[in-house]
C-alpha cells in the first residue's frame, strides 16, 4: 500500500480507520500555533553596545534585511521586546544595566550573544570586561565573530527560530523555574517586588 505524505500509511488507515492517521488534521495543538507565531514575530530590544551593534544595524539595512523575518520592529521599550541581542563587549559598569534590561523584558524572552566579546570576553581579558555575558543572563544562541558579519547574525537568528519552533526553550524555562510569577531580589535590603500578573 502506498504511503500518503500528509496522512500516513494507507494500509494502516484502511485497517484502523481514523485511528491509523499519523496525526490529526482537523485539530492541532495550540502550542504549535504559538511557537509558529513566536518564531515569526521576534521583536529585538534596541540594545547596541559596541562594534557588533554597527553590524546589527547593517543587518537591518537594505542588503541583509532583517525585516524578512518580521524583526525590523526594534522595540525601544524592553517590555515589548522578545529577544535581546547583546551586541558587543559588556563592561563591569554595564553589567547591572544589562541585567536590569533583561529583567524588564517579559517572558518568553531569549538572548543572543553576538560576537566573541559578549560570548567570552574575546581578546579583552582584562579588568574591565565581563568574561562572557552568560555570567549575567542566560544565553540561547552564541554568534561567533569579531564582529560577526550580518550573515552570522542572521544564522543565529534562524537557529533561534528553530529552537523556538521545536519548543525546547519553553521546556527549559519551565524546568528551571523561569517564566511568570518570579520575584526579583533587591540589592541592599529593599523589599522584593512581586511581579503583578493581570491574567
Amino acid at each position: 500500500m502506498p504511503r500518503i505524505p500528509i496522512l500516513g500509511d494507507t494500509a494502516e488507515i484502511a485497517e484502523k480507520g481514523l485511528g491509523g492517521l499519523e496525526h490529526n488534521f482537523l485539530t492541532a495543538r495550540i502550542e504549535d500555533l504559538v511557537n509558529w507565531s513566536r518564531a515569526r514575530s521576534l521583536m529585538p530590544a534596541t540594545f547596541g553596545l559596541a562594534c557588533c551593534a554597527i553590524e546589527m544595524m547593517a543587518t537591518g539595512g537594505s542588503h541583509y534585511d532583517i525585516a524578512r523575518f518580521g524583526m525590523e520592529t526594534f522595540r525601544a521599550s524592553p517590555r515589548q521586546a522578545d529577544v535581546m541581542i547583546v551586541s558587543g563587549r559588556v563592561s563591569q559598569k554595564m553589567a547591572p544595566v544589562l541585567r536590569q534590561i533583561y529583567d524588564q523584558m517579559m517572558e518568553p524572552k531569549w538572548v543572543i550573544s553576538m560576537g566573541v566579546c559578549a560570548s567570552s570576553g574575546g581578546m579583552f581579558n582584562n579588568y574591565a570586561i565581563v568574561q562572557g555575558v552568560d555570567q549575567i543572563v542566560p544565553v540561547d544562541v552564541y554568534a561567533p565573530g569579531c564582529p560577526p558579519g550580518p550573515e552570522t547574525l542572521l544564522h543565529a537568528i534562524v537557529t533561534l527560530h528553530k529552537m523556538i519552533e521545536s519548543d525546547e526553550l519553553v521546556k527549559r524555562r519551565d524546568a528551571n523555574g523561569g517564566g511568570a510569577g518570579v520575584t526579583v531580589e533587591q540589592r541592599d535590603g529593599q523589599t522584593a517586588t512581586q511581579i503583578v500578573l493581570s491574567r
Binding site: W36, S37, R38, R40, S41, D82, S198
Partner: peptide, 19 residues
C-alpha cells in the same frame, strides 16, 4: 500573516501592570 503572528505572539506574552 505577519500581523497575525505578531498578534498571537503578543497575546501569549507575559503581561505587566506597573506597581
Amino acid at each position: 500573516l505577519q500581523t497575525l503572528a505578531d498578534g498571537i505572539k503578543l497575546f501569549f506574552k507575559e503581561d505587566l501592570i506597573p506597581k
